[in-house]
Amino acid sequence: MKRARALIATLAMLGLAGCVSINRVPAGPVALSKGQSITLQSDWAEVTPVMPQRQNAVRVLSIDGPALNRLYLIQGLPSGQGMVKRIAKEKPVPVFRADLSPTELVEFIADSVTAVGFQRVETSNLRPGRFGGADALRFDLNGVTATGLDVSGTAQVAIVDQKLVGAIFLAPSEHYFPAMMPEIETMLSGQATQAAQPAAYQASYEERVAKSAIPPSHALAPPAPMADVANSSTIPLPTKSVAAARQPAPAPSQRCGFVEQANGTLKLVPCI
């Protein structure tokens, strides 16, 4: 919700300034570079203007809002730039280079997805793909948001004329990713194909979610009952006036652990 609040703030300021609107991107072909394009199967919304650290050559489309589905379109990212703009010298971002090996290219995409706010990003199911006439890399992703919402993704990227072109789709694994998969699959493989093994997808999602359960060792004690004033005490703070009495120390016989002695050393009174 914290990110949402920041986003709301940005949007409020932009909207009120009257200089930003979200345009429709109609169904049909979208060029990524001279020879490569993808074909949108339905209308999308251009949310690029409201995404932080915007980079030229990177567009972001959505249908239900960036928290629910996000399609990154990379339209010729040159060597030396990242998918997001660097905001401070000592806060570097992942950088694309035309001589990245295929493994490094996958790593660049995974690192970039981390840089835009996802965690525990992993890639899988690496396979060859095609963008128009060029060989491309196709792979799947999964990660989590900072609050622990499981997110799935799929990407197809290629290096054409020393520049990066590609598409990355990210959405919560619960409903939103499988709902768009048939359309995304058609868009990336250039032909009407079936969604890749929806049952297998669901199984691996449920397994991930089950594994992330909090172990019993982290069992939380019930919240501190504070309402009972008689049994509580104000946490001792430095007294503001010189004349105020020192907080009375608890009776020594009830204390265990490190007890401060008069000479400034600590004495360990064992707890039973």
Partner: peptide, 12 residues
Amino acid sequence: AIFEYGPLKLPT
């Protein structure tokens, strides 16, 4: 909150 109650609407 953002797209129904906020100043920006999604064309979709």
